[in-house]
Design a protein around this nucleic acid. Sequence first.
DNA 1: CTTGACCTTGGCGTCAACGTCAAGCAGGAT
DNA 2: ATCCTGCTTGACGTTGACGCCAAGGTCAAG
Lengths: 128, 128
Amino acid sequence: MTETTTTWTIAQMADDYDVTHRALRHYEHLGLLAPDREGQRRIYHRRERTRLALILRGRRLGFSLEEIATILDMYDDQPGEVGQLRYLLSQIGDRRQDLERRRRDIEDSLRELDELEQRCAEDVARLS
Amino acid sequence: MTETTTTWTIAQMADDYDVTHRALRHYEHLGLLAPDREGQRRIYHRRERTRLALILRGRRLGFSLEEIATILDMYDDQPGEVGQLRYLLSQIGDRRQDLERRRRDIEDSLRELDELEQRCAEDVARLS
DNA sequence: CTTGACCTTGGCGTCAACGTCAAGCAGGAT
DNA sequence: ATCCTGCTTGACGTTGACGCCAAGGTCAAG
């Protein structure tokens, strides 16, 4: 339980998260990641790993990298001003609505899939 | 309650579903839609409307049009052979796994959003 | 000192999903 | 007859998200 590798290289990142190093550079180019440098080389800390995890989850959900950027920004800032906080809260509301819509879509899809499977299974039973 | 417009023009489709007619032609080009013709003009029936609804839901969920095509095919075929049915059942399984993964992602996201909102609300309370 | 592994920065290529003209037909209104 | 509206088929342009080189730096091993 000692602190061993608290940092990672680009190859380790690519390997751990199953992305190409081209993709990592691309995310960095768009400001989604900002690894340190050790000389030339990129050095990734835990922050980048959690960010990358969020990016990939966002991609799986079909968000564009631009949308993902704003989401990451949401989690980044710890604004001191009440105005900023209120704005953030409204953003959170928007995002929640979006996600809930997607969830409804998914649940509808799953229900329809169930029906199809049912009919399918019946047909197999009848024919076998 | 009479049968009035059981068919639709491309403009009505575009209007009802809030897509461009270019998109409709694109979906047709990819074989996702197959409207009738009346002379030159495209004529859409209810079948195309349900298909379009599925397409758009698929897009909202981040599926590619190619994936959507295979999904539509799933619902299209009513295969007579047991082999085909078994294959369809396996496809249904795959799709369900995919959807359930997405649902987990969404629920994780919603939970994190809740936490963020909580902290945010606390900060606002403290500052006001 | 050279090789090889791993990294770097450009920068052009590609694919999907359309957008955006251009040019033209078809039919009703003026 | 011509005009307008709504549609048609190309066909090239665009944007996002990378793929895929090319050309070279760095550092430990042989």
